[in-house]
Design a protein around this nucleic acid. Structure first.
Ligand SMILES: NC(=O)c1ccc[n+]([C@@H]2O[C@H](COP(=O)([O-])OP(=O)(O)OC[C@H]3O[C@@H](n4cnc5c(N)ncnc54)[C@H](O)[C@@H]3O)[C@@H](O)[C@H]2O)c1
Ligand SMILES: NC(=O)c1ccc[n+]([C@@H]2O[C@H](COP(=O)([O-])OP(=O)(O)OC[C@H]3O[C@@H](n4cnc5c(N)ncnc54)[C@H](O)[C@@H]3O)[C@@H](O)[C@H]2O)c1
Lengths: 211, 211
DNA sequence: AGAAAGTCGTTACCCATTTCACAATTTAAT
DNA sequence: ATTAAATTGTGAAATGGGTAACGACTTTCT
């Protein structure tokens, strides 16, 4: 769709910039420098300038960036106009927290439906999201391309296979299981236990450094 | 404490290796090659060998690695002998999910207590963890060094300041707010909304590539 | 015993990303 | 009008991490 030239590291920071620019705009600020932005989002100012420069010359030398212009630009670039619908698989502890959270607000993403294997959950509505039985997944999915996985680790392979067969293009996997998918499907892992343990490890072994 | 030579990227993979070695050990396997490990944890085998080599020659050429030996080694390296106690601030949707999760099992980390500002939550026990009022934080913390932040974004700066004054050394921050702390304190950010939006962005703009 | 296969540890290279540093430009001040 | 200050965009260097490839060694096979 867009230019394939934008580095992935940059792409990951865009939502962050976008959210902060929104704040600034709401505060009525009309102008911002890379230095100010840097302090707020904790990213080096040179990195910010470089990131922006991939999209062309968005700023003005000696002045900085116009907040409204930048915001408008990113809104288009991040496709904030169209809502992305995702499905959540596994309405347990973690899944429930996500269902109650409003990703719509800043991110224009909405969890459209959830699936679970437990009879207790099926039929319920959590945070306004209907929960269907996992057996009905394929017939209910209605073209949804992205799935959030919050099921027990042991269930992961089976469910993943079904998601792949169904035709999702992206999976956000919160289980500790490492999944195998065809190359054209993108998987992001978020392993909360590993994150926590890694933090503890760093504290013990790198007492005074920064990340 | 240990060698400062270990790259951060390696350090982040250690908990993953550890968990998988545990599985292998429980399955009764006594020997494993970097190739097998690679397939299981989805990390290139050369990277695994490189990672291990930072700690010395742990394997044997032509044979692979001895599971029990490696496990014992990592147990020591990752300080899996001592339990790390952490505190959770904000027993809301996300916080509750964490409280109900057993980080102890594989990670020897335990959420010892939680704090919340809401009268409804205080006094409750979630997942066996007592919830105290945030006003009592300093007197209850009892030397805990690590905090998990799951409070509303707007509360983040105030609470962070108190945590810093109290003397924590590490914070795992799930709020969208970017916090400022003195250099000697380590903060890891996990911004779930950004992760989700980044996944969606990649799907739309890099349809066929790998991360 | 000797040959073949397997596997590590490491060297050398590659790539992506970050950061420095500065010319170019604009704004603000006197 | 001139000067000083601010700030961008980017070339070049530094950092950091990943991986192909191979010599060395071990195990297994015949
Ligand atoms: N809760 C946490 O804080 C936390 C932390 C780290 C990792 N995780 C991981 O996240 C995942 C979910 O954790 P959780 O605490 O929410 O677990 P949970 O047991 O509370 O929830 C799992 C849910 O999945 C449902 N389920 C089971 N099999 C299913 C299937 N085949 N199809 C659809 N639904 C199915 C269950 O009915 C349940 O509602 C687990 O893999 C866990 O290891 C959770
Ligand atoms: N739930 C999600 O899926 C999700 C996703 C992305 C980001 N987040 C972020 O995680 C954070 C928590 O989200 P949540 O959904 O659990 O929110 P929540 O409102 O359910 O929970 C927040 C909890 O913090 C408590 N609290 C408020 N002020 C406090 C204070 N000063 N000290 C201690 N406790 C206080 C509240 O009483 C409440 O129990 C938010 O910053 C949110 O943006 C959550």
């Amino acid at each position: 769709m867009d230019q394939n030239k934008i580095p992935q590291a940059t792409a990951k920071r865009l939502p962050l910039y976008y959210r902060f620019l929104n704040n600034l705009n709401q505060q009525g600020k009309s102008r911002v420098s890379s230095k100010e932005l840097s302090e707020a989002v904790k990213v080096d100012s040179a990195t910010i300038r470089r990131d922006f420069s991939y999209f062309g010359a968005l700023g003005k030398k000696g002045y900085g960036y116009n907040v409204e212009y930048l915001l408008e630009f990113f809104r288009k670039t991040l496709d904030q106009d169209e809502v992305t619908e995702v499905a959540l698989i596994g309405a347990g502890n973690l899944g429930t927290a996500f269902l109650k959270y409003n990703f719509m607000k800043n991110n224009n993403i909405v969890i459209k439906m959830a699936f679970d294997a437990s009879a207790e959950k099926v039929g319920e509505d959590i945070g306004g999201v209907p929960i269907y039985h996992i057996d009905e997944m394929e017939e209910r999915m209605d073209g949804i391309q992205v799935a959030i996985l919050t099921i027990p680790a042991g269930e992961t392979d089976g469910v993943t296979e079904r998601l792949v067969d169904y035709g999702v293009t992206g999976i956000l996997n919160f289980t500790p299981a490492r999944i195998t998918v065809p190359e054209h499907i993108r998987v992001h892992h978020i392993d909360l236990a590993v994150e926590l343990q890694a933090l503890v490890y760093f504290l013990k072994h790198y007492p005074l450094e920064n990340e």
